[in-house]
Amino acid sequence: MTKSNKLFTILIPIISVLLGLIAGAIIMLISGYNPILGYTALWNGAFGDAFTMGETVRRITPLLLTGLAVAFAFRTGLFNIGAEGQVIVGWLAAVWVGLAIDAPMIIHLPLAILASLAAGALWGFIPGLLKAKLGVHEVIVTIMMNYIALYSVNEIIRNVLTEQETTTDAISPSASLASEWLQGLTYFSRMHYGILIALFAAVTMWFIIQRTTIGYELKAVGFNQHASKYAGMNVSKNIILSMVISGAFAGLAGAMEGLGTYGTISIMSGFTNLGFDGIAVALLGANNAFGVILAAILFGVLKEGAGQMPTGAGVPTELVDIIIALIIFFVASSYIIRWILLRFKKEGK
């Protein structure tokens, strides 16, 4: 039984992705485009030359971190829809420190990154606290926190960091993650050192969850709160801790955008969608650090490649959003895929 369960956790994401891509091809056919041309354009948009590959890596970096954020909370049985808001406050905090402080790189850069971690953690702490102490459902609180983040950050950009401008100045080079070496390698893409931080974060998550007592308790609370309490664990503490760490991961994703890709923060008319895509990444990656890396690569490639589809094949970029949404549906409905697979197995015998 455990063996077939393991098989299913690998098979279901793969089948879901294939079904999603097939559905994308069918949609292209129905709307009069050539799916082969469409997917070729997508491939070239993601891997065509050194520049696009650099941009793909840049795209993957924050997705990987928001994926980890959502996955980490999931492990404690919590649903962090608030990664979106945590990204925004992390982005602001990183850029703020990048602008306000004058220090050598060895102090400045870590300080900016720490600021983003702290801001994201704070934005996760509030829903965690409300859940742990008052039993308020974290999904609703995190959604509300997203909007509070969006409007407050816009206000701060407009009135505190600038004087009624829409974009801040660029951060000082001593806080920047940008790398001339990586840019040179990839023909001046915006690829930056953040990918190393993101991969390190994935290893950190794996280590916390699999190799420490803290991780053991977090998982135990996720499986059964009552049993954990009976075993002497502090359930409230673990819920809050899980949301704080999750928020910190998402805040770090904001730092990737603020310190790496853009070096500034602009007024946002809507969400970055990094947080919502993180839900998709976590789900497809089965909430496992290694799975999240693979899922982030896939979605990063799809999203970056989509940019080439309008010019390459005339297909609107939104096709990729439809494909990603369908993949989530298929993974979420794994119950039915599992059922069909079991059916086939029985008939095969």
Partner: peptide, 28 residues
């Protein structure tokens, strides 16, 4: 209801799908 999917996840997917379809068809 039928596939016992996580309802929050399904809702998130509905949001992405609706916006994707809407803008895709608008562009087409």
């Amino acid at each position: 209801v039928s596939f016992n999917a996580n309802q929050v996840v399904s809702g998130v997917a509905i949001n992405m799908l609706a916006l994707g379809i809407g803008v895709y068809l608008t562009k087409q």
